[in-house]
């Protein structure tokens, strides 16, 4: 981005530097108009790890869903006792598990579950968090107080305890797990959005909208919310990683997605952990690796977006 700025103004008088900067700015503006999204994209493209992660994550999602749809119904769900705990081979590139199922096929099917849970649970968290944060920040006073006490309340219970109990209340299964992770993960977003609204609600453009008689909710959603989109996008990206991890932890402990339906979380918890490590480490290694790589790439994407969307960063 430094192209449009004079490299060095040392030795020049301030006035000439100003003129030069202005000329260069004009030249730049005639060359191309940069919309905020264009600037963001350019900055993001400069974060190479984030771009590589985005490509990898897109490929991963495509592979898991297309391949998963091609596998016949009921694949890798029935036990085959002749094939128990086979080490990786040409036929079974990631080996077979304690029920004789192909680990790679289960990773594809489990990935469908884990990624769906991650993305949908994040969507619920972001929707809830944005709504609560926006209402609390905009209206303030008693509404704000009540909503923020609810946030405090939910944050006071250690998150994994809360997740396990709620999973127990609503019952195991993919849809319920999405719901449970969604409704235990919105508090951070609510705080971010609220802080944003607090700083924006007294700005002139809001004042202007109010003076021409725009109602509260249009002001919230049409005028203020678009200005807090950047932190929400970053929170959403990191939220996918968080939700995938939450699913993995709850399922690992046996309170999430139940076998025989595979998820990356319940695949790393095949009965006896220690026995499996001793006899057939690949059963845990590959799904564990998938969770780690996915979370890592999503975090890289989030990191890249944070830098790209930050108006103060000069990347």
């Amino acid at each position: 981005m430094d192209r449009t700025q004079p490299k060095s103004t040392a030795g020049q008088s301030g006035a000439t530097a100003d003129v030069r900067a202005q000329l260069q700015a004009e030249e730049a503006s005639t060359r191309e108009t940069l919309s905020p999204w264009k600037i963001t994209r350019r900055r993001f493209m400069r974060h190479r790890l984030a771009v590589a992660s985005l490509v990898f994550f897109t490929l991963l999602v495509a592979t898991v869903f297309i391949w998963g749809a091609l596998l016949p119904e009921g694949t890798a769900r029935t036990a085959d006792y002749d094939l128990i705990r086979q080490p990786p081979s040409l036929q079974h590139p990631m080996g077979t598990d304690q029920a004789g199922s192909d680990v790679m096929q289960r990773i594809i099917l489990g990935g469908r579950v884990s990624l769906t849970v991650g993305i949908l649970a994040m969507a619920i968290s972001i929707l809830l968090g944005t709504l609560v944060g926006a209402v609390a920040g905009y209206f303030g006073g008693g509404v704000d107080n009540v909503l923020m006490r609810i946030v405090d309340l939910m944050l006071s219970i250690p998150s994994l305890f809360l997740l396990i109990i709620l999973a127990g209340v609503i019952g195991p299964g993919m849809r319920t797990i999405i719901l449970v992770i969604g409704i235990t993960g919105w508090m951070g977003v609510a705080r971010i959005v609220r802080a944003n609204f607090l700083s924006l609600k007294n700005k002139e453009f809001v004042e202007a909208a109010r003076s021409i008689g725009v109602r509260d909710f249009p002001i919230i959603f049409k005028h203020i919310l678009p200005n807090s989109v950047a932190p929400i996008i970053v929170a959403a990206t990191l939220g996918v990683a968080g939700a995938i991890l939450s699913e993995a932890y709850v399922s690992f402990l046996g309170f999430g997605i139940q076998p025989p339906q595979p998820s990356w979380g319940n695949m790393v918890s095949p009965g006896s952990f220690l026995l499996t490590i001793t006899q057939a480490p690949w059963i845990i290694l590959f799904p564990g690796l998938m969770i780690t790589i996915t979370v890592l790439t999503v975090n890289f994407i989030g990191d890249g977006l944070r830098d790209a969307l930050d108006p103060f960063s000069r990347l």
Partner: peptide
Amino acid sequence: SFVFYSFPVFFLGFMLLWIFSV
């Protein structure tokens, strides 16, 4: 720190157990 920050607990536990114990 970025990599370890993204590591799930059970995977790090698995790796350490696998290498240093088994």
